[in-house]
């Protein structure tokens, strides 16, 4: 039986309506930090929520992140960072986005970021910081509500 291989909870495949605005998100690891499991889990969850995720992977500089975000015309950049360099690298992303006239691209971050520094990043313009233990539903809800134009 061909249907047996698919869990019954999954809906039948459907055809896309022709005209639809899709949310696009760039996800990446900023700086020198090889821990990419979290960002992959989040990318997968966003995919399952209907988002087009452009996954840029490891060792991205702020310049690379911003250039990719502009070329891909994303609605948001999801930065994963566990190296401790967030106070250097994330503000630089925000600065470059503004320089390029792309300050409307929403930046959100996840990783190990202490509360006081998270607060500071938010005053600088980071939309949200998702620390350890954040549920995927929280992140998906954020993307769906804040990035939908």
């Amino acid at each position: 039986m061909s249907t047996a291989s698919r869990p019954s909870s999954k809906p039948a495949p459907r055809t896309e309506p022709a005209s639809q605005k899709k949310i696009r998100v760039l996800t990446l690891k900023l700086g020198l930090d090889g821990h990419d499991r979290g960002v992959k889990v989040v990318s997968r969850a966003l995919r399952d929520a209907g988002v087009e995720v452009i996954y840029a992977g490891l060792r991205q500089t702020p310049e690379m992140a911003v250039e990719a975000a502009i070329q891909e015309d994303v609605d948001g950049i999801g930065v994963s960072i566990l190296s401790g360099a967030h106070m250097t690298l994330i503000p630089r992303v925000l600065e470059l986005l503004k320089e390029r006239g792309a300050g409307d691209i929403v930046v959100f971050a996840g990783g190990i970021i202490p509360d006081d520094e998270a607060a500071e990043l938010k005053t600088l313009g980071v939309a949200e910081i998702f620390g350890p233990g954040t549920s995927l539903a929280t992140i998906v809800d954020f993307v769906n509500s804040r990035l939908r134009k």
Binding site: R14, V53, A68
Partner: peptide, 16 residues
């Protein structure tokens, strides 16, 4: 995805 319409686009990563 034929189920959600979402995607993980991973070609750019090879052209860094």
């Amino acid at each position: 995805s034929p189920f959600t319409g979402g995607a993980v686009l991973g070609d750019r990563i090879r052209m860094q």
